[in-house]
């Protein structure tokens, strides 16, 4: 009985994984792209004060800057700027 139950559980998990694969596979790229666009906007908000765009949450955004550092290089190259656009925030 216990064996059957664990077997059923195993099959359910397997079906669930295959189902998730089936559900996600064709749209993975489109969703990743949409997500990246949102992230890009967020990046712009975080660094907006430095670019002269007033931001009421500027103080709190500063705290986030170190966390975004890793993705900063990707971001500015993707936005068509070869080097960091900020004077006091160097990148490459």
């Amino acid at each position: 009985m216990k064996n059957t139950l664990s077997r059923l559980k195993y099959l359910y998990r397997k079906a669930s994984r295959a189902g998730a694969d089936y559900y996600n596979a064709p749209y993975r790229a489109a969703i990743a792209r949409a997500r990246r666009e949102e992230d890009d906007l967020f990046m712009l908000l975080v660094f907006s004060e430095m670019m002269g765009i007033p931001n009421p949450a500027g103080w709190y955004c500063m705290e986030l800057q170190p966390l975004m550092l890793e993705r900063f290089h990707d971001w500015h190259t993707r936005m068509g700027m070869e080097r960091s656009p900020l004077d006091n925030f160097r990148c490459c």
Binding site: A18, D21, Y22, A25, P26, R28
Partner: peptide
């Protein structure tokens, strides 16, 4: 890369190809 290029089980991929 986990986004565009993902090696996928052939049955799952067949299901997809067929239904699309």
């Amino acid at each position: 890369d986990g986004i565009d290029f993902v090696p996928t089980n052939k049955f799952v991929l067949w299901g997809h190809h067929f239904t699309s």
